[in-house]
């Protein structure tokens, strides 16, 4: 039995909204999105989560990293010690070693490529204006180390003389969608996360970048000892990179196993893939 890094038990989440009924009375409509969901993510593996639109994949990610509250259940993050994640703030969870990417491109548009890399990181040094102002020596040293680190990370993937490092002073908003996507993934290396949640890493990306993304994910797991939990709609990509796969439907996990097993599951074929 492999080691577990994330263990979710009995997790439920409902969105409540008030609606006007035909008789003009206020009523409450409850949409139950996650229903007593249980899920385990193994340490050092790439785990994929698949499921239809609106099945709660991104909501699950938002609950895990603290953007949303859950109604009940528990999320245990095991990183040396066992941490209960429910009720913690996103920045606290990030400090514990859990990072994520977003479905749409979230990037610091007005920051340069290098600054985008430097700003990621768990150390809080330089967050206060006074320290920033009065210890420039130490500041510069840390900055230099981080710049060196960013260079290594980029060169490990793309070799020396690559596009990103040559254009490191360029503002990130000038990059193409696929390049921004990749910058978002590279930035994760800077932060020493133990588990990263990736929300559809290949969406809207030119297939020529798929190989780079695959390289990055493999490097995260093999070299940097991270665990990856990703949402993906591209089944070919899931088969290629993932070790484990979960299928979410009607608010809970309906099928688990290797990607091939899950994709061949009749329920997955009928309700999601449709062939």
């Amino acid at each position: 039995m492999a080691e577990t890094i994330l263990h979710i038990e009995n997790l439920s989440k409902a969105f409540v909204r008030s609606i006007k009924t035909a008789r003009k009375k206020d009523a409450i409509e409850k949409i139950s999105l996650l229903n007593h969901l249980d899920l385990t993510v193994e340490k050092g593996k790439i785990t994929a989560l698949i499921g239809g639109n609106g099945s709660g994949k991104t909501t699950l990610f938002n609950i895990i990293n603290g953007f949303l509250d859950a109604d009940q259940g528990s999320i245990k993050f095991i990183n040396g010690r066992i941490h209960e994640l429910l009720g913690k703030k996103p920045d606290t969870i990030a400090r514990l070693g859990l990072g994520r990417s977003f479905q749409d491109n979230h990037i610091f548009d007005e920051l340069s490529i290098l600054e985008n890399m430097l700003v990621a990181g768990k150390e809080t040094f330089g967050e206060t204006p006074f320290v920033s102002l009065f210890s420039p020596g130490r500041n510069r040293k840390i900055e230099k180390q981080k710049t060196e680190r960013a260079k290594t990370i980029i060169e490990n993937i793309f070799g020396s003389g690559n596009y990103f490092w040559q254009h490191k002073a360029e503002k990130a908003k000038n990059l193409s969608h696929g390049q921004r996507r990749i910058l978002g993934l590279l930035r994760i290396f800077m932060a020493d996360f133990k588990l990263v949640l990736l929300d559809e890493p290949t969406t809207g990306v030119n297939p020529e970048f798929f190989q780079s993304i695959t390289d990055i994910l493999n490097r995260m797991v093999n070299e940097n000892k991270m665990s990856v939990f990703l949402i993906e709609h591209n089944m070919g990509f899931v088969k290629q990179v993932a070790h484990n796969c979960h299928f979410i439907h009607d608010g809970c996990i309906r099928a688990s196993g290797t990607p091939a097993e899950v994709i061949d599951n009749p329920l997955v074929r009928n309700t999601y893939l449709g062939f």
């Binding site: 990293n65 953007f67 703030k89 996103p90 920045d91 990030a94 400090r95 990072g99 994520r100 977003f102 979230h106 990037i107 610091f108 548009d109 007005e110 920051l111 600054e115 430097l118 700003v119 990621a120 990181g121 768990k122 809080t124 040094f125 330089g126 967050e127 206060t128 204006p129 920033s132 102002l133 500041n139 840390i142 900055e143 930035r187 932060a191």
Partner: peptide
Amino acid sequence: KFGIKTRAMRDDEPLCRVFA
């Protein structure tokens, strides 16, 4: 560094929280 973080916060607040 404080300046970089200020500009980062201007660009994308949730992303800042994700990066601790």
